[in-house]
Structures are given as C-alpha cells and as structure tokens.
C-alpha cells in the first residue's frame, strides 16, 4: 500500500471508511464524518496532526467508521487537495468510471 503521509508532511487530514457502506469519509472540525474532502479539518504541523488523529480514535466512532488514518494534503491557493494519487482517487472515485463514486454525485448536484 502506498504511504499516506511523507515524513516532512506539513498539512494533514483524517479519513476513514463508513461502517455501513464503506463510503470514504473525513473528520470535520466539529468531529463529524463528512463524505466530501473539502469538509475535512486540516491539521498544520506534526503535533496538530497527532491531535487530529487522536480525535478520530475515541471508542464511540467504532460504531460509525473503520480504520481512520492521517494523510498528507497540499495547499492549493485558498484550498487544499490530497497529495497522493491514492487519496485523490478516494476523494473522487475510480478514474476509469467517472459515473461512479463521489465525482458522480458531485456531477449530479451541479
């Protein structure tokens, strides 16, 4: 499996999969799990990253999500985007089926 964060990663977010259907979710600033990456809380620096991950671990999330982990994100102007191809694909859906995954939902909404 590809590495989630490089050693010198500055910005990170926490992601997991939802228990009921495996949907990719992100930990938000108010400790909810959102389906879209822009809603993710972003940690700046290693210590903030650890603190963010710690917020994802409490036992009560066990009922909602699986295997939360930190991954690296990059600043892109006023926004952030996942750094690795893996996380870009998780945030959007399969690149070979643009009609499926979050990218398809986004299309429908627009």
């Amino acid at each position: 499996m590809a590495q989630h964060s490089s050693k010198g990663a500055r910005f990170q977010a926490v992601t997991a999969n939802r228990l009921s259907d495996g949907e990719v979710v992100y930990l938000t600033a108010d400790n909810q799990w959102a389906e879209t990456f822009p809603a993710a809380d972003i940690a700046d620096g290693a210590a903030a990253g650890e603190a963010l991950l710690a917020r994802a671990l409490p036992a009560d999330f066990e009922l909602h999500v699986l295997e939360p982990y930190l991954f690296e994100v990059l600043q892109d102007g006023a926004h952030f985007k996942p750094a690795s191809v893996r996380e870009i694909i998780r945030a959007a859906g399969p690149t070979v089926r643009l009609d499926l995954g979050k990218q398809a939902d986004a299309k429908q909404e627009s």
Partner: peptide, 27 residues
C-alpha cells in the same frame, strides 16, 4: 457488528471468511 456488540477487530476476520473486503471506496 452494527449494534456495537462486536468490535471491528473481532468482526474483520469473520467478514473476510465470507469474502467481504474493505476497499478504497466501499466494501
């Protein structure tokens, strides 16, 4: 598992024995 009686650690080997994997976007 859904009711919380089973932890993921306990459930994971059981779901795998029934061919259910967790992948990138879904099961």
């Amino acid at each position: 598992r859904v009711s919380g009686e089973l932890s993921e650690d306990a459930f994971k080997p059981l779901r795998l024995m029934n061919g259910v994997y967790l992948q990138l976007h879904a099961y």
